[in-house]
C-alpha cells in the first residue's frame, strides 16, 4: 500500500475501514455514550423500516393481503415456522425477540448496502451484544427450565464412557466459543464485504492516473457490481444464519438431551 502511494504521487487512497468509523452526526466532539452518531441514524432507519413493514404494512388488515402485507405475513410465517420447527412449541414464547433480532439485523444489513451508508452490524460491539444476549439468556433459560439436567448437554450419553470426559471438555469449550463465533460471523461477513467493495472502489479511479487504468478500471467496476450482488445475498443469509443459530441454541436450552 505504501508502495502504491509512493508510485503515483497523489496516489490511490485505500481506506477500506474508514466507512466503519463511528462519528457524531452533529459537530465534531468526542463520542459519549449518549452522542447521536451515525450508529444512531442507521439503527433508527432500520427501526423505521421494521415499523413500516410490520406495522404500517399490515395496517389494512385485509383478508386478501396487498404487497406490503404479504411480505409482513411472509416474514412472520418464515420466522414463526423456523422457531416452531427447531425449538418446538415451547420456543414460541421467545418468538417476538427472535423476530426482533432477525428484522433488526436484516434491515441493518440491507440499509448498510446503500452507498455512503453505515452498517451497524459490521461492528463487534453490536453483534457481540446481540450474541451475548442470546448466550446469557439461553444459559439462564436452560438452568431455569432444566435445573442441573442442563449440564447433561456437555455429558454425551451416546459416546463410550471413556471418551465422555474428553468430549465434555470439548463441549464446554464449544459452548463458550458460541457467542464469539456467533458475533464474529456476522460482523466479519459484513465488514469483509464492505471492505472488499471499498478496495475495488479504490482501484476504480486508476484510469485518471495511469495507462494501465484502461484495463483496471472496468475490471474493478465489474468486480464492485459482482461483490455488491453477493453482498445482497450475504446480507440476507447472515441475518437468517444468526436467527437460525439463535433458535438452535435455544433448542439446547429447552431440550438439553442430545
Amino acid at each position: 500500500m505504501a508502495e502504491t502511494g509512493a508510485e503515483h504521487g497523489e496516489g490511490l487512497s485505500f481506506h477500506p475501514m474508514d466507512q466503519f468509523i463511528v462519528k457524531p452526526l452533529f459537530g465534531d466532539g468526542p463520542v459519549h455514550w449518549y452522542t447521536i452518531t451515525n450508529v444512531t441514524l442507521w439503527m433508527a432507519l432500520g427501526v423505521v423500516a421494521v415499523i413500516l413493514l410490520m406495522v404500517t404494512g399490515a395496517a389494512r388488515r385485509s383478508i386478501v393481503p396487498g404487497r406490503a402485507q404479504s411480505i409482513a405475513e411472509l416474514t412472520y410465517g418464515f420466522i414463526h415456522k423456523m422457531v416452531e420447527d427447531i425449538c418446538g412449541k415451547e420456543g414460541l414464547k421467545y418468538f417476538p425477540y427472535i423476530l426482533t433480532v432477525f428484522l433488526f439485523i436484516l434491515f441493518a444489513n440491507f440499509l448498510g448496502l446503500l452507498p455512503m451508508a453505515f452498517t451497524p452490524t459490521s461492528h463487534i460491539a453490536v453483534t457481540g451484544l446481540l450474541a451475548l444476549v442470546v448466550f446469557v439468556s439461553v444459559t439462564v433459560i436452560g438452568f431455569v427450565k432444566n435445573g442441573t439436567h442442563f449440564l447433561e448437554l456437555f455429558w454425551v450419553k451416546s459416546a463410550p464412557l471413556a471418551l465422555r470426559p474428553i468430549l465434555a471438555v470439548i463441549e464446554v469449550i464449544s459452548y463458550f466459543v458460541r457467542p464469539v463465533s456467533h458475533s464474529i460471523r456476522l460482523a466479519g461477513n459484513m465488514m469483509a464485504g464492505h471492505a472488499v467493495i471499498k478496495v475495488f472502489a479504490a482501484f476504480a479511479p486508476l484510469i485518471l492516473m495511469s495507462g494501465i487504468g484502461v484495463l483496471v478500471t472496468p475490471l474493478s467496476i465489474v468486480a464492485i457490481v459482482a461483490m455488491y450482488g453477493l453482498e445482497v445475498l450475504v446480507a440476507f443469509i447472515q441475518a437468517y444464519v444468526f436467527t437460525i443459530l439463535t433458535c438452535v441454541y435455544l433448542k439446547d436450552a429447552l431440550h438439553p438431551a442430545h
Partner: peptide, 17 residues
C-alpha cells in the same frame, strides 16, 4: 435447507476468523 445453512455458516465462520 436449515441444516445446510447452519453447516455453511459454521464452515464460513472459520474463514471469517
Amino acid at each position: 435447507t436449515a441444516t445446510l445453512f447452519i453447516g455453511i455458516a459454521f464452515a464460513e465462520a472459520l474463514g471469517i476468523f
